[in-house]
Design a protein around this nucleic acid. Structure first.
Lengths: 125, 125
DNA sequence: TTAACTGCAAAGTTTTTGCATCCCC
DNA sequence: GGGGATGCAAAAACTTTGCAGTTAA
């Protein structure tokens, strides 16, 4: 039962750039959007994908699936999402304090709750 | 302001086969799984996709996104989902009767609430 | 020095679309 | 008979992977 030795991680400007980009914007960008923002640096799209996956794995950011695409969220605390079906915007909203977990008895370990409200935002209405 | 004439819809055995397949199974199949189940009929994958999209549009079935793939759910009433991160199974669970919609004031029209619990099911634990 | 990291391109997935043919009404 | 429906293949959109050159430590 030996655990794998920790994999050495290097600090490269690409890693810092991807992390800072996601942490500094609150609009839940996709991998392509992060890459576009950083295009002046010459970073490759595959590198952006690799670092985003790493940030999710280490718990620094959270991946959110919406409309068939993966978006990245710098808010790692418990919260829900709201999405406008007209303009496509996605934003954070509070998670109801007491989310009744009734009827989930077939689940023995509950890890996460994903809640998204879909509708029309006041700007589009 | 003339409205578009209703598009004529034909009843073909392909349409019936796709609808019956989704309505008769409760395991939230993907388009590929529906196609596999119907492969003996010789139906094309594109036709399966076209009919599934039609069924969703007319409200007969519901599309559920999970783990980057689209699954189809014959249960169109309000309900939540539970997913096992170990075996990948996805099943229906009741939606909490009163889901507090606090903090969604930026949303002027609320159409849908998508709630998914992620964890380990009792069979995998 | 050297093993991890990077960029590029190729490959893999999932879903959509163009089009000639088919066949339901 | 005519126009919607189908099947096939090509394309599209998104993500992962292989590999040789690069670079942090």
């Amino acid at each position: 039962m030996c655990e794998d030795p920790p994999i050495a991680r290097r600090a490269t400007w690409q890693k810092v750039a991807v992390r800072d980009e996601v942490l500094n914007r609150h609009d839940h960008p996709t991998a392509a959007e992060v890459h576009t923002s950083l295009r002046s640096t010459g970073i490759g799209l595959a590198t952006v994908y690799r670092h985003l996956a790493g940030l999710v794995e280490e718990g620094t950011v959270r991946a959110v699936e919406h409309d068939g695409e993966t978006r990245y969220d710098c808010n790692t605390g418990p919260h829900a999402h709201a999405a406008c079906t007209r303009c496509g915007e996605l934003w954070d909203v509070p998670l109801p304090a007491t989310l009744a977990k009734n009827g989930v008895e077939r689940m023995s370990v509950l890890d996460e709750v994903h809640l998204t409200y879909a509708g029309v935002c006041s700007a589009c209405d």
